[in-house]
Design a protein around this nucleic acid. Structure first.
Lengths: 188, 188
DNA sequence: ATCGTAATATGATTTCAATCATATGTTGCC
DNA sequence: GGCAACATATGATTGAAATCATATTACGAT
């Protein structure tokens, strides 16, 4: 299943890509073919520093797209490396550009992009909060605690231990409810 | 001057907004009128927690837009508070939705959004790096050092002292050049 | 010229999250 | 039922960045 906007793209423009762990989907400087949707597996986008040190600029998960900006540029600006085998779909750059003439696609794209930008801005603010307790509280207010505490901690870029301690403190201070082991939420 | 995509919007849809420090441009739950462009001044987007604690989800600078996602929703999901007096322009929601029928606008919007998403992803990865030295190095590779070291440190969400120390260490280790006081850059 | 302010720079101390260690509870599996 | 794997939970220790303190340098305003 493609993410929302891309179901407006004709299937002729979709190219399945498969690869093994360690394979590079594209290299920095390669001419752009289009953007990619991760169906399964995981892909890292990496940039190489002057001394050859690789640093990750994005981790693309299943269900997300990457290299969207490549649609508007001539060359890829980073490497895409498969870190967990899976299936990708490449969406042809020309098709995406053409699809912008379809207002339904344009609005769907705009909506998704605007929401993503908003969510990312919020994440940047949250991970910028220094005190674990404040960060956890902000995460709770933002509704980031959906799965396990371990997942929540990872999203907040905190160790899970620090997260448990912050939650306990917030419960002790009466700011968070802990109706049962492992369940935490704000007061109504 | 409006950011790139919005110069495709007819000027009749632009509404100048002025306000003093502390004024609220819109409140969480208000029906949406449209998105905003900050010409001068600064605006914070804030969400209010259950105990009334305000937490900032975004700091909008001059030259940037905010509340883009409101174009696709019925109510604002946060408060917008002026923290530095200046001039805003509100762009009517209906005009933006209509403008998506113009492929030139749609592509300009898509391009800007895709680039912003990419930049934000990179920022999330960078601020997620724990060691100050590694974070500063990543910031340098990403080209984040444009203005002063103080600005650079703020972008990296590091204290400027930690940033100076990391830079000194990187210079000592020969990974960064420091041709003169206050000037740091990578080897060619 | 000199005054004030801000950036650059570095040393000393403190704080707090990471890490290491350990225990209990929970879940699925054979 | 018993075992393995994992989430939850918390205590002890460590390490690294924040904070505090202090110079020096740069730069604009008067």
């Amino acid at each position: 299943m493609l993410p929302n906007p891309y179901d407006h793209i004709p299937s002729s423009a979709l190219r399945p890509i498969s690869g093994a762990v360690g394979d590079t989907v594209f290299h920095q400087g390669d001419p752009t073919h289009g953007l990619y949707v991760v169906q399964t597996g995981r892909v890292h986008l990496e940039r190489v520093g002057p001394d050859g040190e690789r640093f990750i600029i994005h981790r693309a998960q299943a269900g997300t797209s990457f290299a969207e900006a490549s649609v508007f540029s001539e060359v890829y600006h980073c490497d895409a490396v498969i870190v967990e085998a899976g299936a990708l779909i490449r969406i042809d750059k020309a098709s995406v550009l053409a699809a912008f003439a379809d207002p339904a696609f344009a609005r769907a794209y705009g909506r998704q992009a605007a929401q993503q930008i908003q969510a990312q801005r919020q994440m940047l603010e949250i991970v910028g909060i220094r005190r674990a307790e404040d960060r956890v509280m902000a995460g709770l207010i933002a509704g980031l605690l959906e799965g396990s505490i371990v997942e929540f901690a990872a999203r907040l870029q905190l160790s899970h231990e620090a997260t448990y301690r912050a939650l306990r403190k917030l419960v002790q201070d009466g700011r968070v409810m802990n109706p049962s082991r492992g369940i935490y939420h704000l007061h109504p």
